[in-house]
Nucleic acid binder design. Structure first.
Lengths: 245, 245
DNA sequence: GGACGTATGGCACTCAGTGCAGCACTCTGA
DNA sequence: TCAGAGTGCTGCACTGAGTGCCATACGTCC
């Protein structure tokens, strides 16, 4: 909502959301990353962090339920933004496009702080515990997308299956693009990379177009295939006929 | 490889793989699950487990690097089986079908011990820590599939993107089917459910044929569809026409 | 019997995470 | 100005996971 100063790293607001800002949370994130980068995650204890930040040990766990959480200080808010976004529609949007847009919210969060994101990427890549934690975060994003799609696909045959698969595909495409951008130290156009990746998913699963469809011409396509031919072959033929790919 | 007694729960062999069997590992798994089920995972300490199993505390961590590992005693072997399977091909197989077959290996492991799998499912569903751990296990499966596909798609444009997305889709479809089977207490045909789910992924991503096709009867199928109709709708129609499902 | 490798047990230690109590500050109302 | 309440921070003690080290027991080979 608010748009104050864009500091170096963290800027999520959790306690006291109405008034000003809790500098302590930011101080803890800053101290933690300083130590993580110069001596490694596992070689840094929570005591080291709070000593450097000049606060009490108990306060650390007031802001971050675990040591891992300090590495992902903004995901909680981003996840809330995503669920808000998905809930805000009127239910007539094209579902796959909608979840792709939701995924772009995550990219935007990463892109807001490129240097911080790249540092975190390098950290999570080499620390197994952080990788596992990141997985649980990604899983929550994926579940949010899947739940939205399940609701939209309600009544459809294999609706939950399609919802789960498409959500996973969207997340995988997003992460593929995101990681390639992070590997390049935040150079290049992150949005374009993600758009391209999500385009691949939409080409595979995209269903109805955003709005134009109502006024489609009633052209008729005839596909001829040998009975018993593998399904993929038939689909390929149809894709060609319909002009995809 | 070997097929001795199929005990109630665990039967993976890690230390001393050449000779007989380590009963201690099985005893620990059995004691752990007994306590997890009757008093909960978090309410059970490692000391409780080793006391019930009648072994030293240090031995627990010799067999299981963490408390979570005792809940997934057979995934390490299953993962090795999967990588072996993927590496055993001659590189001419249809890639998507190949990773689907690899995913079926995981299902087989679950289906070997339905009651154990259902118990574990209920446990992981309610314990956040175990869910996070399971995610990291699933992630390793997904990476194995993705790495295989990346190799097979080498040189293809967007090869790594397609590999990641397809791997994620296969895993999601597999898990969707697996979980629906687990929710039904292991009743029903797990293989058929998973086949159906994987069929959906193959219909979306499948590319080249396995081998048959050469000697198919020349019956002719005609599919008529409005141009602009969503792909999934067309596929659904074809599935019905071809007599699947 | 002695040397060796291996499986196990015991002990002490680090560190993450929690519950509790106390302290400091602020705001409010009389 | 002071009493009271609410809140944020700190220190302290405790549980429990996970590790390193060493001692012990068992079997094998020489």
């Amino acid at each position: 909502m608010s748009s104050e100063n864009a500091e170096s790293a963290a800027k999520a607001r959790k306690p006291d959301p109405a008034k000003g800002k809790p500098p302590m949370r930011d101080a803890l994130v800053a101290a933690a990353f300083r130590l993580f980068l110069e001596r490694g995650y596992e070689q840094t204890t929570v005591d080291d962090i709070v000593t450097l930040a000049g606060v009490g040990r108990r306060s650390f766990f007031r802001y971050f339920p675990s040591k891992e959480d300090v590495v992902f200080p903004d995901h909680e808010r981003c996840l809330a933004d995503m669920t808000d976004f998905l809930a805000s529609g009127d239910g007539t949007e094209e579902p796959v496009g909608r979840v792709c847009d939701a995924a772009r919210l995550v990219l935007r969060m990463y892109a807001e702080n490129p240097t911080f994101s790249v540092q975190r990427y390098r950290l999570t890549k080499k620390v197994p515990g952080l990788r596992a934690y990141e997985l649980s975060v990604v899983w929550r994003y994926e579940r949010a997308l899947a739940e939205y799609l399940r609701a939209r696909f309600a009544g459809r045959r294999d609706g939950t299956l399609q919802a789960d698969v498409i959500a996973a595909a969207v997340v995988a495409a997003h992460n593929n693009a995101l990681r390639s951008w992070l590997r390049s130290d935040g150079q290049g156009d992150a949005s374009a990379t993600v758009d391209h990746a999500l385009g691949y998913v939409q080409s595979a699963f995209g269903t109805a177009p955003p709005a134009p469809l109502v006024e489609q011409p009633e052209d008729v396509v005839v596909v001829v295939s040998r009975r018993g031919a593998p399904l993929w072959r038939v689909v390929q033929e149809i894709e060609t006929t319909l002009g995809r790919d």
